[in-house]
Structure formats: C-alpha cells, structure tokens
Design a protein around this nucleic acid. Structure first.
Lengths: 147, 147
DNA sequence: TATTGTTATACTCTATAACTATA
DNA sequence: TATAGTTATAGAGTATAACAATA
C-alpha cells in the first residue's frame, strides 16, 4: 500500500501555463510521429528540411533555416547529416559563391515520399482528437503565437 | 540582386501540418522563455520538475517523470543535474526502498521563486498575442491533443 | 516476476564563438 | 563591412539496453 501513488499529483498551477501545455502537446505529437515513421530514420526537423528543399529546388541553406526557425550552425548539423546520407545535395551558387543551393536527390525524394504517406496517417490520427473546425482554430492560434 | 531572396518560399503543404504548427509555436515559446530566464540556468523541463517537486514534497521520481511525459532514464539525467546543483534532494523512501523521494532544497525554492516571476512576465507577453477566450480555447485544444 | 532506480551509450537539437570565403 | 557558410565546442533532452536492489 502506497499513500503517495494513490494521491493525485498537485500541479500548483504549472498546467495552466501556456508553455507547459504546448510542451506536452508537442511531446505527444513527437512520440506519435516517431512511431509513425519507424525505420525511416527521419526526425521532424529532418523531414521539414527535405520537404522544403523538394518544394524549392536550389533554395539557400540559410533560407530553409530561417523558415524553420534554426540558426546557421544548427542548420549545418542537420544538412550535413542529410548530405552524408545522400538525401540532399549541396551546390555552390553561380550567382553568389557564398551561397549553397540545396537540391533533393532521388534517394531523398523517394524517402520523403514514404515519409509523407506515414505522416498523413499520423496527422489523421492526431486530428481525430479534434473536429475540423477545432483543428482550424488550433492552427490559427498556434500561428499567431509563433508569429 | 538575388532572384531567390525575392522569391517567396514554397511550403508545399508543410505549414498545414499540425506537427509543423506546434513545433513552430513551441520554438517561439522556448526562445521567449529562455530570454525571460536569462542567467537562472533553468530550462523549461528543469523548471517543471522543480515546480512539481515543490508542490508535492516527497513525490517519487518516477511520478514526476510520468507527469511530464519523460521516461525513467530521461528523468535521471534531469534530476541528476538538479541534485548536483543542490536544487533538489533525493531520499530513499522508508515505506518502499526502491523509491526515491524528491524534496526541494532552500536554494531550489529560492531559484524557483525567481523563475516564477520571470515566467509570469514571459507568459503575459505570449498571452498578449491572444484574447482571454482564445487563450482558454488554445489550452483546451492542446490538452485534448496531448491526452 | 514486476517495479524503481541506475548506468552506459548514442543520437539529435540547439546555440555561441571564431574562422574562411565572398560580396 | 556585411553576409553565407563552416568548424569546434558545449549543453540539454531523448531513448534503449543492461543491471542492481527491492517488492
């Protein structure tokens, strides 16, 4: 018999903080995401980079980083790993030699296609927790918060 | 002159994913949080642990981890660091020697009090982006998503 | 056998600072 | 001078597996 296990945990207001609520929701999304893409070895961030590179062939490394809220050094780590795995290619820009243009490789495109199908299932599973209208409201509020 | 910089980045649907929207919002919250608690050396997670320990003196390490969505090993890393810094104390439970009861130290309580004041400002700043009613809606939807 | 904590290990994200090359 | 990328370094969160102690 354990008194403590039976006792409800007091949150002392922690669970009323926006920061806490978002962190928990992101944690739940992350775990479901990881389960959904098992075996593909693609994190949320890596997928986002691949996704943007495929949608914007030749996009600058820094632009992708800025779009995803990462600084240059963080972006380097990510792109370096993707390049090592042959999922993206880096090319020097002809118009500005400082730039590195990112391109999706065939392997990258194939892997992204597989990931997309898995993510669709994952998104569907999470969205089922809300109505369509609630989903739109949530997205809109999250966008305002991030902006 | 750079064509690319002038061109709007195509998101190709990425920004319509719930996973993406939450990640971006969490990123924004995290950056604002870190700016708010500058100098205290307390991450969101560390603060959450301190907060729960203070609200539940003698709480089990595993319970805190479960409440925050962390597994035992992850929790160990966190508690270990807090203990090293003298912010929490670990004691063997008398009723169940497997358990470790967590207690806040004076230094931990003092630091948490300072953090709380900073976090209140941070929360206020972020909440200003929404109306009161929107804030409540957002919290409720996030809770559903995490549950 | 099941549970709690622990350790070792590994990977990812994150950022700062200093550096190179280019504009 | 300013910008884009790079490298080195460091801290933090995350999880898996194997292990010890205890129930």
């Amino acid at each position: 018999m354990d008194d403590r296990a039976a006792t409800t945990l007091q949150f002392g207001g922690l669970d009323e903080l926006l920061g806490y609520r978002i962190r928990r929701a992101q944690g739940a999304m992350h775990r479901d995401y990881m389960a959904a893409v098992t075996g593909l070895k693609l994190t949320q961030k890596q997928t986002a980079v691949l996704w943007l590179v495929e949608a914007n062939p030749g996009v600058g490394q820094g632009e992708v980083g800025a779009a995803l809220g990462m600084d240059r050094a963080t972006m380097m780590t990510l792109v370096h790993r993707l390049e090592e795995r042959g999922l993206v290619a880096r090319r020097r820009s002809r118009s500005d030699a400082r730039r590195r243009e990112l391109h999706s490789t065939e392997a990258g495109a194939r892997l992204l296609a597989r990931a997309r199908r898995r993510i669709a299932v994952h998104e569907q599973r999470m969205r089922e927790k809300l109505s369509d209208s609630e989903f739109r409201t949530l997205c809109s509020l999250l966008r305002r918060l991030a902006g």
